[in-house]
Computed example of a mutant assay.
Amino acid sequence: MTVTPAFDPVIHAPLRLQICALLAPVTSMEFATLRGHLDVSESVLSKHLKTLEDAGHIRIRKATSNSRVRTSAAMTPEGRAAYDAHVAELRRIVGAGPDRGPNG
């Protein structure tokens, strides 16, 4: 699959870029797991997830398990495409093409 590089200002914010990087290789991830990886407060994570959700990049799912509400996040197909394009654009900007490593 060929990805056309495209900068996405919604994804580019450092925490949102990290969220996308964590979600990209998985089907979904629980809120608590995301929070643990990112070492941020619930309110900060919620705000960034909402921004990504509003842009259509992720979907938030709430499910009840053992009488507890579990919140998880997953990338949408559009979000995955936007993330891939954003990463490709960052590589283009810094001069590291898809077949070159970070050290050239």
Rank of each mutant, 00 (worst) to 15 (best):
L22M: 09
L22Y: 11
L22C: 09
L23E: 04
L23D: 00
L23G: 01
L23Y: 05
P25Q: 03
P25R: 05
V26N: 11
T27V: 13
M29N: 07
M29S: 13
E30V: 15
E30M: 14
A32Q: 14
A32D: 13
A32T: 12
T33S: 12
L34R: 06
L34Y: 04
R35N: 14
R35W: 07
R35I: 05
R35T: 10
G36W: 04
G36N: 11
L38D: 04
L38R: 02
D39A: 08
S41N: 04
S41Y: 10
S41D: 08
S41V: 11
E42C: 01
E42A: 06
S43G: 06
S43P: 11
S43N: 14
V44W: 02
V44S: 15
L45H: 01
K47I: 02
K47H: 12
K47G: 08
H48N: 09
H48T: 00
H48I: 01
L49C: 07
K50A: 15
T51D: 11
L52W: 01
E53R: 15
E53L: 13
A55N: 01
H57W: 00
H57P: 02
H57I: 07
H57G: 01
H57D: 00
H57K: 10
H57L: 10
I58K: 02
I60S: 08
R61Q: 10
K62G: 09
K62E: 06
A63N: 08
A63P: 07
T64L: 10
T64S: 08
T64I: 12
S65T: 05
S65Y: 03
N66T: 12
N66G: 11
S67P: 09
S67T: 14
R68F: 09
V69E: 08
V69S: 08
V69C: 06
R70Y: 04
R70K: 09
R70M: 11
T71E: 06
T71M: 03
S72Q: 12
S72E: 06
S72H: 05
A73T: 00
A73Q: 01
A73Y: 13
A74Q: 06
A74G: 00
A74C: 10
A74M: 00
M75E: 02
T76I: 01
T76D: 03
P77N: 05
P77K: 11
E78T: 15
G79P: 00
G79L: 00
